[in-house]
Design a binder for these strands. Structure first.
Lengths: 353, 353
DNA sequence: TTGAAAGCGCTAACAG
DNA sequence: CTGTTAGCGCTTTCAA
């Protein structure tokens, strides 16, 4: 029957030992240690148990508890496996807040493959996670359906679904675009193109809608709108290429995120043009270092860490009270003006390349 | 005795059900399903078990298994909670590789506080992790002593200890500095200062040593060496300030990492100087986007994803064979020449600020 | 080669 | 208020 534990770190103290030292039964220890059941135990006994636990350095075994209760105080977090991005602050915010709620996080970095995502989620469920934070979802994501079917609490972060089936924490993407457009229009721009993001993500879709709507509010229409397939600098460069080729009259580009905007930088430079003089560029996210590129990027700031924290809060609520209503948290974005936007040039682009 | 499971996702299939369907005892199922014990079971029975497991969609319950065996196929990963940095690729590399070894990762983002780190590690141990990957260690870290005492397999990544008590995967930091110095000397520089990193981390210490040693190899000596307390842009800016004030004769700055180098950019700009003309600057890490700053940063590239992968491999070996020797993996860095280095100016700095 | 049985550490219904 | 008892799902010794 030998319990093959790790080589030899002194084996952990069990509840039974605490019970012996305190002179009570294990179940009393269990009750005394759990705040929810503590009132059942007479104060004097609680004190004895606490003391015994302390002197022995007892820690509750979460694995045993989990086997018994089916809960784990463990939360799974699925994030896209991209290095250059906003997911790190989301993660640090979420994990920090989760731990104040008494939860630990299992983070899984996943690619776009839906099959792999389902597998990973299955793993997490097998590990009895109490809930999931998803930073990966598309507008109608099978994973969300899966969680719903399994009755596993889930919260979306950064990206939401088209239909609000589970709680989500997102930035007000349409409002962000409005800030961008208002800024450009105030500078005098009227021929503005859009580098849209992937349309299967809410960020791509809503920012695009926001772009169009904000323009319309000023009585303007889009001068070009190209969709990038992924949020990468390379795709951004390529899309910007098409945008400029198709609409040489534009004086400004609004990108759906910073990486796309930086791709546009590459293209603009390649054409021998300068930003902001020939073309103004504006990003979205305000990710680290974009203030250091040349010119410093004007962009829409989102507080990703706050997003992570709120997602943790929302998940905790969802776990704790089974049928809390599906609540969405929408965070207000902020315009950060730097050097990549200025008044428009007069006349057409004169490409030196 | 009610098992209070999640509201109502159909309760997971148990081994017992598989046993019934296959017409054998649970212990036979257990043996058939575990590759290590499978040879004990007659082939025909194995087949029946497999088929039954498949049709029922059985998944082994890792929690129950863990309670019984003391192992978890779970690995804890401790990383510093900084957003702008090299730890994301280390993490994606490590978690991807871990999963091919059949392990899941619990990632914890931690601050510099030693007490908090110990607590977190305690949590992970309570969750019965089979091992730890530490990206946080200082040159003589209590956490490593703790793991040793608990006989918990641990592997260091990116940063090592002074004494090799446990396996580590690091870049050849001294070699990296040699590449930097050789490059600058080849360009004609001879008055070179160093923006050193925190000396309690191996990266800071070794890069500093490498700097000094590489200079000596060219018959040169340091023109200034300031230590930054943390790897941040702000500290870098401040340290660069001191460096330039104390050694106005320098023509080049070698920074211990990219963030410090970017801080130096700020200072140089503030002084009305230009890089590389007035002062050449070289970083370390080649983190994302440093090719986009102005001027594009010359730096030493480290493959952090590979680092993560190797750390996962090393940990797996350490877990699997208890007393494998303490092996260090040292990855070769590469010089990436961009726009922040050029031939030195003639004469003194003429600050316009 | 397989089944029986014990038990990992904990929680919760039940009885007192 | 507290002790007894059963058992979460699995692994492994022991006996057949």
């Amino acid at each position: 029957m030998s319990q093959q534990s790790r080589g030899g770190g002194r084996r952990p103290v069990t509840m039974k030992q605490v019970a012996e030292l305190a002179g009570v039964h294990v179940s009393t220890v269990s009750r005394a240690l759990n705040p929810a059941t503590r009132p059942m135990v007479v104060a004097e006994a609680v004190a004895r148990v606490m003391k015994a636990a302390n002197t022995l350095g007892y820690r509750l075994d979460p694995v045993a508890a989990s086997l018994r209760t089916g809960r784990s105080r463990l939360v799974g977090v699925l994030v896209p496996d991209i290095a250059t991005s906003v997911f790190t602050p989301i993660l640090t915010g979420a994990t920090a807040r989760l731990s104040t709620h008494g939860y630990s996080a299992m983070v899984a970095y996943v690619g776009a493959d839906a099959r792999q995502q389902l597998d990973l989620a299955g793993d997490l469920i097998a590990r009895r996670v109490d809930g999931l934070i998803l930073a990966t979802v598309s507008l109608d994501d099978p994973l969300v359906g899966f969680c719903l079917a399994e009755k596993l609490p889930a919260v979306l972060v950064n990206r939401a679904e088209k239909e609000a089936r589970v709680p989500a924490v997102v930035s007000d993407d349409m409002r962000g675009m409005q800030l961008a457009i208002d800024h450009l229009v105030a500078l005098g721009h009227s021929r503005i193109g859009h580098l849209a993001g992937p349309q299967q993500h809410s960020t791509g879709l809503l920012r695009r809608q926001g772009f169009l709507q904000a323009l319309a509010a000023h009585g303007l229409k889009a001068h070009g709108l190209i969709e990038a397939g992924t949020y990468t600098r390379e795709e951004g460069a390529q899309a910007a290429q098409q945008l400029i080729d198709g609409h040489p009259e534009i004086t400004a580009i609004v990108a759906a995120n910073d990486l796309l905007a930086l791709g546009a930088y590459d293209t603009v430079r390649e054409h021998g043009l300068t930003c902001p003089h020939d073309i103004a560029i504006i990003g979205h996210n305000d990710m680290p270092l974009v203030d250091l590129v040349q010119p410093p990027l004007t962009t829409i700031r989102i507080s990703h860490e706050e997003m992570g924290r709120q997602a943790a809060d929302l998940l905790q609520q969802t776990i704790e009270s089974a049928d809390s209503p599906v609540r969405n948290v929408v965070l207000p974005p902020r315009l950060i003006v730097r050097g990549s936007t200025a008044a428009p040039r007069k006349g057409r682009i004169k490409s030196k390349a």
